[in-house]
Design a protein around this nucleic acid. Sequence first.
DNA 1: ATGGCTGGAGGATCCAGA
Length: 259
Amino acid sequence: MKLATWNVNSLSVRLPQVLAWLADNPLDVLALQETKLTDDKFPAAELQTAGWHATWFGQKTYNGVALLSRHPLTDVVRNIPGFADEQARVIAATLGEGDTRVRVIGAYFPNGQAPDSDKFTYKMAWLNALRTWVQAELAAHPRLVLMGDFNITPDDRDVHDPVAWAGQIHCTPEERTHFAGLLALGLHDAFRLFEQAPKSWSWWDYRNLAFRKNQGLRIDHILVSDALRAQVSACHIDKAPRKNERPSDHAPVVLALSD
DNA sequence: ATGGCTGGAGGATCCAGA
């Protein structure tokens, strides 16, 4: 079974690239972030033609998340229950049935803009709500994957220039403490279960030739629960779509689970 | 060059992203 997450920075712009990438990279489930589409504009028909089930949750201009799946998805939850939020950032669903079913949560974590901003305060509140809810989800669904654009670098290995980024958004101690708090629930950063090349990023700024110079951050993550950890056989970042014409600024992260 | 692309909204620039 293969799962992936990809912040596409507008699904209407990137749908052809998503379909092309999926044709070359067979998956069971893909979590999308920043679809930037209201629900009536979601390209369900095109995806269905390509053989994908989908569930989606979006809004105008900003945010928006979706799950694409080769198999039906059930028990869909949109956003964090009990956390009033104008912004469409979370979609969860269950794949399969019986003892091998997997709960999948796709999330677009708040950016936070700057550590002294109101948006950072919102990011902290959102992260608190997320942790409480994920803890409950884990209790109900031990086989769980939490993946998406976390907008957090877990540590300095995930930052191309840790000195310049020290204390900046994505790299503050507060954000990293929240990331560690998710791991403390019994989740594992799948990428770090394996030896990885140094300077592995999932995002590169559009400006400054950042991709060509490989100046980026690792902010897109796949966390797997204790119950799934033994089945994780690979996790990698696929840089190929970042080389496309008119690319997303994020690359997909891919997880393989053995049967 | 001290925020240098990109997408969306709207119809010129501005907001937001990370």
